[in-house]
């Protein structure tokens, strides 16, 4: 097992539960760029102001995939307001640990959520 990443990060990276395109999504947040190496798509389906389901597609490092997965899990069932107020620290805690140089992956995933919510609300 990698000593670089926590077991939690590795498990999510090796078998993410929330990946895949959501054909009937209400909104999708596209974030990241090829220069930094991580590109994420966060899909949300909203019902009665709450995230009914979420999924992602990520071209990126193991941390980017793990944080995408964990953020989708964390926002599922939450109100949109709650979803956009999740913090980096809450994500890192849920992943047990994240190497310092990879914390930006957590912020990118959160940005993805905010972008998706913004798109939804702008509809």
């Amino acid at each position: 097992m990698s000593k670089y990443y926590s077991k939690e990060v590795m498990d999510r990276f090796m078998s993410p539960k929330y990946f895949g395109e959501m054909k009937d999504a209400d909104a999708v947040g596209l974030v990241g760029n090829p220069r930094c190496g991580d590109e994420m798509e966060v899909y949300i389906k909203v019902r009665e102001g709450k995230v009914e389901s979420a999924s992602f597609r990520t071209l990126g490092c193991a941390a980017a995939i793990a944080t995408s997965d964990v953020v989708c899990e964390m926002i599922t069932g939450k109100s949109l307001e709650e979803a956009v107020s999740i913090t980096e620290k809450e994500m890192v805690d849920k992943l047990k640990d994240l190497p310092h140089v990879k914390v930006h992956c957590a912020s990118l995933a959160l940005e993805g959520v905010k972008e998706a919510v913004k798109k939804y609300e702008g509809k």
């Binding site: 990443y5 990276f13 190496g37 071209l59 990126g60 490092c61 193991a62 980017a64 995939i65």
Partner: peptide, 10 residues
């Protein structure tokens, strides 16, 4: 369609 680090870790 893949990123090198995730390939390395896998």
């Amino acid at each position: 369609g893949v990123e090198g680090e995730s390939l390395l870790i896998s």
